[in-house]
């Protein structure tokens, strides 16, 4: 198993290097530049050139690339042009807000899709299964900004139960209240996707003979679902969840902007607009690392869950 992890990690390092290289050249290829964001679009060419020289952006692109790598290997992510703070510190501040949102939505989506998927598998060709299938498509297709605004309208404006955005004051209750609507908004399409996939797995498992054997033994449907079907249907689902972690993060960008929730997604969106190269590259790198870790953890979990792999 360790050999597998090491092999996977070394491949991951190569893909990460390719990813950041690609991103580096792509953001430098876009017209404009951070100087315009800092000085405003009517700045004189001389002022822009001076600022670019000061920031080292007048040097050949390959040099810049080399310098950026040197710094990266020393563990330095650079300074944000716009916010004048070290990027690692900046990310540290925004990261735990995003983690609260994304992990909350992920946990909710997993819980919902396990329950809904098992029901869908159990009902398979019956009306209940078809209704669930229809709702999955509706919620999957619903854009985050639409659901977000709908939820704000109902729960903040009409009912006045929950705040429409922001992070709230420190303290559990305030943070949770501010998190509720963004988490729901983000979890809804993710639950729809997850449960559709898991429901399909559960349905396949319900067709297996061992379910009939379990029923013939007089086990209750609850026990069959939780002890037998779930155990077998959950394995491919784990892989999917691992793969979806970066997608969840990207969905979080929209959610964070709808709810004006200052997390990493919001920061990514801002720094793309401002062409804040160091921040943008660092966040890209982080997403890449998350993707690779998500897949690796999913594969490890899978090999632990699969008795056949474990015994060979």
């Amino acid at each position: 198993m360790w050999a597998m992890i090491m092999r996977r990690l070394s491949v991951s390092v190569i893909s990460l290097a390719l990813l950041v290289t690609l991103v580096f050249f792509m953001i430098h290829a876009t017209p404009g530049g951070p100087a315009y964001s800092i000085l405003g679009s009517h700045a004189s060419p001389e002022a822009v050139a001076a600022l670019n020289r000061q920031m080292g952006l007048d040097r050949p692109l390959l040099d810049q690339y080399g310098i950026w790598w040197d710094h990266l290997l020393e563990g330095r992510l650079g300074y944000s042009y716009i916010q004048h703070v070290g990027v690692s510190r900046l990310i540290g501040v925004y990261l735990d807000r995003t983690l609260a949102l994304d992990l909350g939505a992920l946990a909710l989506a997993i819980l919902v899709s396990l329950v809904v998927g098992l029901l869908q598998g159990y009902w398979a060709d019956r009306l209940g299964g078809r209704i669930i299938g229809f709702l999955q498509i509706v919620f999957y297709a619903m854009p985050v900004f639409f659901t977000g605004i709908l939820l704000i309208y109902v729960f903040s404006i009409r009912l006045d139960w929950l705040p429409p955005g922001g992070v709230g004051h420190p303290g559990w209750v305030g943070r949770l209240r501010h998190l509720t609507l963004p988490v729901l908004t983000l979890a809804l399409p993710v639950s729809a996707g997850f449960s559709r996939y898991f429901g399909h797995q559960a349905r396949e498992e319900y067709r297996q003979d061992y379910v009939r054997t379990a029923r013939a033994r007089g086990l209750s449907e609850w026990r069959i679902a939780t002890r037998h079907v779930l155990r077998n249907a959950v394995r491919p689902f784990v892989t999917l969840v691992g793969m979806m972690i970066p997608v969840l993060f990207v969905g979080g960008v929209l959610t964070e902007s709808v709810f004006n929730y200052p997390g990493l997604g919001w920061l990514l969106w801002r720094s793309a607009l401002d062409q804040d190269y160091p921040t943008l590259s660092a966040i890209t790198l982080l997403i890449g690392v998350l993707t690779i870790l998500g897949n690796l953890v999913a594969d490890l979990l899978n090999s632990i869950l699969d008795v056949r792999v474990r015994y060979e």
């Binding site: 061992y210 054997t213 013939a216 007089g218 002890r227 008795v307």
Partner: peptide
């Protein structure tokens, strides 16, 4: 049924849960 009736089916390869 659980106490009084047992059942055996045709395909023993898939009649048991593979992960228990």
């Amino acid at each position: 049924r659980r106490r009084l009736v047992g059942a055996v089916f045709q395909n023993p390869l898939s009649a048991l849960n593979p992960s228990l």
